[in-house]
Amino acid sequence: MSEPSDARTAACVSIAWLILINKPIYPLYVWALIGADAATRSLGTLALAPLYAAAPFLARRSTRGARIALPLIGLADTLYATKLMGAATGSEFFLVACGLLAIVGFPAREATIARTLVIVVYLAFLVLHGRYGAPLQTWTAEEAATLFTLNLCAAASLAAFIGLRFATVA
Rank of each mutant, 00 (worst) to 15 (best):
D77Q: 07
H129K: 05
I19D: 04
P56L: 00
G133P: 10
R165K: 14
F57S: 05
F106A: 02
V104S: 02
A102I: 01
A144Y: 01
I103E: 02
G35R: 07
T78H: 02
R109C: 02
F106N: 06
A111S: 13
T89V: 10
Q137M: 14
I15N: 09
S14G: 10
R115L: 14
G90L: 05
L117M: 08
L84D: 01
L95H: 08
S5V: 15
L164K: 11
T78C: 04
V96Q: 06
P4Q: 03
K83A: 09
R64K: 13
L58R: 03
I103T: 04
A53F: 03
L20S: 15
G35A: 09
V13H: 09
L128W: 12
F125K: 03
W139K: 06
A114P: 09
I25A: 12
P24I: 02
A11Q: 09
I119S: 09
Y132G: 13
L136N: 10
P107K: 04
S91V: 08
K83S: 08
I15K: 11
A38P: 05
L147A: 00
R109Y: 04
L126M: 11
I19G: 11
T138V: 13
V127N: 01
D77T: 09
L75A: 02
A39W: 05
V13S: 09
S157M: 12
P56Y: 01
R61A: 04
G74R: 03
P135F: 05
H129F: 03
I68C: 05
L101D: 06
A7V: 11
A102V: 02
E92T: 12
A53M: 09
A38E: 04
E110T: 05
A144W: 02
A59T: 01
V120F: 04
Q137P: 11
M1Y: 06
G44D: 03
G86I: 03
A145W: 03
A141H: 10
R8Q: 08
Q137G: 09
A38W: 04
T112K: 14
F161N: 12
A160R: 12
R8W: 06
E110K: 11
A144R: 00
T138W: 07
